[in-house]
């Protein structure tokens, strides 16, 4: 198999498994209600995953991606969101703040 063919096979295998993962809920569970413990787990999963995604994205593997100049922009975005400012404005403030800080340092 050539490298290009191997790459194509890898892409299609990943796409197929991805399809199966996402279809698993409706196909396996159907209309059955979730047990309370599983419901509690599912309710908590987004918060845990989101917090982990943010942390991992900021730090990177072996913390090699960490840049302290992210922090003021993120803190400003969080504070503005807590004050009820629109999401897109919060994100723009984070972008402008981070770019500005990088330009200054």
């Amino acid at each position: 198999m050539t490298t290009t063919t191997t790459m194509l096979v890898a892409v299609f295998v990943l796409a197929f498994l991805n399809f199966c993962y996402k279809a698993s809920g409706p196909v396996i569970l159907g209309d059955r209600p979730l047990p309370p413990s599983f419901k509690a787990l599912i309710d908590a999963l987004p918060a845990a995953l989101l917090a982990a995604l943010i942390t991992i994205n900021l730090l990177g593997a072996r913390w090699e991606h960490f840049d302290w100049r992210f922090m003021p922009g993120l803190a400003a975005a969080a504070a503005l969101r807590l004050l009820g400012i629109a999401q897109i404005v919060c994100i723009l403030v984070a972008v402008v703040g981070t770019a500005g800080l990088r330009a200054l340092t």
């Binding site: 922009g73 993120l74 975005a77 969080a78 994100i91």
Partner: peptide
Amino acid sequence: IGLDIVFPAFFLV
């Protein structure tokens, strides 16, 4: 231009 902050900022809000 600070675009690498977009993803974590979006998930944070």
